[in-house]
Structure formats: structure tokens, C-alpha cells
């Protein structure tokens, strides 16, 4: 990898971690709204959208485990929304693990 690319990736990685902190806060807040029937649909959409974004970039920036789990979470939510056999407990467990991994990715830096 050339120096210019390494420097560029380091810059984006820093930005990703700053953004990840905000995304983690949104995930936590949205998770808390899953029990509220009126807010649940919007909360699920929000979590899915954040998982999608993390899944799209984390791997390229060196956060492979976080990216892979974000993809699993997104996939589980999409299956759940499509009416496939993914239950609520599974979705919640995936989201909790995603929040946890996001936190660990930040603290490891």
C-alpha cells in the first residue's frame, strides 16, 4: 500500500471512529424504543440503516469483525421485516452485540 493511500485511509478511519460513537448512541436510543409499539417500526428502520452503513465500510477500514456482525444484524432485520422466521429475541441479541462491538472497536483504538 502506498504512503498516500495509507495516510488517506488513516484519515477516514479516524472519521469512521468519530462517526461510530454517534452511531452507537443512535443504536442505543433506537434499541430502547423497540418496546414502544408506536416507535418500534421507525427504530428498527434506523438500526437497519446504521448496520448497513457500518457493514459497508468497517471491513475496508480494518474493523472486520464489527463489519461482519453489522452485516449479520442487517440481514436478520431484513429477514424479520420480510416476515421470515427470525424472532424478536434474535434481533435484539444481534443489536446488543453490535452495540458492544462498536464500543470495543472505539476503546481498542
Amino acid at each position: 500500500m502506498n504512503t498516500e493511500l495509507s495516510a488517506g485511509l488513516a484519515k477516514v478511519r479516524t472519521r469512521f471512529l468519530i462517526e461510530l460513537e454517534k452511531r452507537r448512541a443512535v443504536l442505543n436510543y433506537a434499541y430502547g424504543r423497540l418496546d414502544d409499539d408506536a416507535a418500534r417500526a421507525e427504530a428498527i428502520e434506523e438500526i437497519c440503516s446504521i448496520a448497513h452503513k457500518i457493514a459497508g465500510t468497517a471491513g475496508t477500514l480494518g474493523f472486520g469483525e464489527l463489519g461482519a456482525h453489522a452485516a449479520t444484524t442487517e440481514d436478520a432485520i431484513r429477514q424479520h421485516l420480510d416476515g421470515q422466521a427470525v424472532d424478536d429475541a434474535t434481533i435484539r441479541a444481534e443489536i446488543i452485540q453490535l452495540i458492544d462491538l462498536a464500543g470495543r472497536s472505539q476503546s481498542n483504538e
Binding site: N2, E4, L5, G8, V12, R15, G56, T57, L61
Partner: peptide, 16 residues
């Protein structure tokens, strides 16, 4: 639509 991807692409494409 993801700002991080746009930045990432910008850096990578420039470096390439």
C-alpha cells in the same frame, strides 16, 4: 449516501 464511503472512495481513487 454514506459520508464515510464518499470520503473513503475519494481517498482511494486519488491514491490510485
Amino acid at each position: 449516501d454514506d459520508e464515510i464511503i464518499r470520503e473513503l472512495l475519494s481517498e482511494i481513487l486519488n491514491a490510485l
